[in-house]
Simulated scan of single mutants.
Amino acid sequence: MERVNELLAALGIVAGSQTVLLQGIVAVGLFVAILGIAAVFRPSTAVQIRRMQAVASPLSGRDIVRPWDNDPTGALRLFVPHSGTERSKISARLRQAGIHKVNALRNFFLVRSVLALALPGCFVLAVWFNQSLPTGLSQVLEPLSRLETPQAFMIAVLLVVIGFYGPSAWLSSKVAQRRKSVTRGMPGALDLMQVAIEAGLGFDAAMNRVAKEFGRFCGPIAEEFTILQLEIQAGKPRDMAFAQLERRTGVDAMASFASVVQQSAEFGTPISQALETYSIEMRLDRELKAQAKANQLPVKMSAVLAAFMMPILLLIMLTPIAIRWVTVLTP
Rank of each mutant, 00 (worst) to 15 (best):
F217N: 02
K174E: 13
I197H: 00
N208P: 02
R216Y: 14
I155R: 06
K212Q: 04
P237A: 14
A199D: 11
F214Q: 01
A234C: 07
G188E: 12
V210C: 10
G188V: 12
M154Q: 03
V195E: 06
G163M: 06
V157G: 00
R216S: 15
Q229T: 05
I227G: 03
D239K: 15
G188L: 09
P220E: 00
P143G: 07
A152S: 02
F164L: 05
A234F: 04
A206Q: 02
W170T: 00
S145I: 10
F203W: 15
A234T: 11
A234L: 11
G185E: 02
S168M: 14
D204Y: 09
F242M: 14
L228I: 04
E224V: 08
L158I: 13
P187M: 01
V210S: 04
G219L: 13
M193K: 00
M207E: 06
I162F: 08
R184G: 05
Y165K: 13
E223Q: 06
E246V: 10
A176D: 10
L201I: 12
E223F: 08
I227F: 01
A211K: 09
A199N: 07
P150R: 07
F203R: 06
E246K: 01
L158V: 13
I232H: 12
G219T: 15
A243F: 06
Y165S: 08
L171W: 13
S168Q: 13
M193R: 02
P220R: 00
K212T: 00
Q194F: 01
E231I: 02
L192N: 11
N208H: 02
